[in-house]
């Protein structure tokens, strides 16, 4: 495999580990059952009523779910962003809505049945799926209630604080794209947030770890 392929695989593994909250072995098991799919902006992913055999994890981009209302107008049910899941689990079903990419979008797909088998065989994959589904439920309820929560950079800052040990160190240096995905934001937002922390000296980067220099200042940025 060439360097680009190695890099992409490493990024996929980090993303899976971050989203499923599982170790590298389970991430490798999951990735071997997954396929990466790319969609251009505006491309249809599925039509309402189509068989839905897959669970999808969004690595990059956004997907909208749309239905036609009784007035014949198309209405948006929801919009899924980075780190979110949609599709079928634990069994195949029919798509309830039209699904369309609204930006350049990258997904990992896995057959629902395969994922259910893996969940039964690997406790940490089962636990990871439970966590993912719980977070997705929270997100959907937040959307229904139009609740105000932390901003994307606020969530990223909070994740850094949660990863730090008693010495305020984060070992090893996290993969930023995967960490961003785990808090439902983009690699760009995560990279910009970390760059700002490094620029201000709130966090220092070393070869094998990050060090939080001022926990109070980082906590103030959890907004």
């Amino acid at each position: 495999m060439h360097a680009g392929g190695d890099h992409r695989r490493a990024e996929q593994l980090s993303s899976i580990a971050a989203c499923f909250g599982c170790g590298p072995h389970s991430a490798d098991v999951l990735l071997s059952a997954m396929t990466e799919r790319r969609y251009s902006a505006g491309a249809n992913i599925a039509i309402r009523g189509d068989p839905s055999n897959m669970l999808f994890l969004i690595l990059e981009g956004s997907v909208v779910a749309e239905i036609f209302g009784i007035d014949g107008q198309q209405a948006q049910l929801t919009r899924h962003g980075p780190g979110e899941i949609f599709g079928a689990y634990p069994e195949p079903m029919l798509h309830r809505a039209d699904l369309r990419a609204i930006a350049e979008t990258r997904l990992l797909s896995i057959p629902a049945v395969s994922l259910a088998d893996l969940a039964r065989a690997h406790a940490d994959i089962g636990s990871g799926i439970a966590g993912l589904l719980a977070r997705q439920l929270d997100l959907m309820l937040d959307r229904m209630a139009a609740r105000i929560g932390l901003s994307a950079s606020g969530r990223f800052h909070k994740a850094l604080l949660q990863m730090a040990d008693a010495n305020d160190e984060i070992r090893p240096v996290p993969v930023i794209s995967a960490l961003a995905l785990s808090v439902h934001t983009t690699r760009e937002t995560g990279s910009r947030a970390l760059a700002a922390l490094l620029r201000r000296g709130i966090v220092e980067r070393y070869e094998d770890h990050l060090r939080i220099v001022s926990r109070r200042m980082l906590e103030e940025l959890v907004v």
Binding site: T78, G81, L139, A146, L150, S151
Partner: peptide, 15 residues
Amino acid sequence: EPMGEMETADGPVDV
């Protein structure tokens, strides 16, 4: 003054 992000069906809205 930024106050966070409101989740909506159309995507997140900064508030």
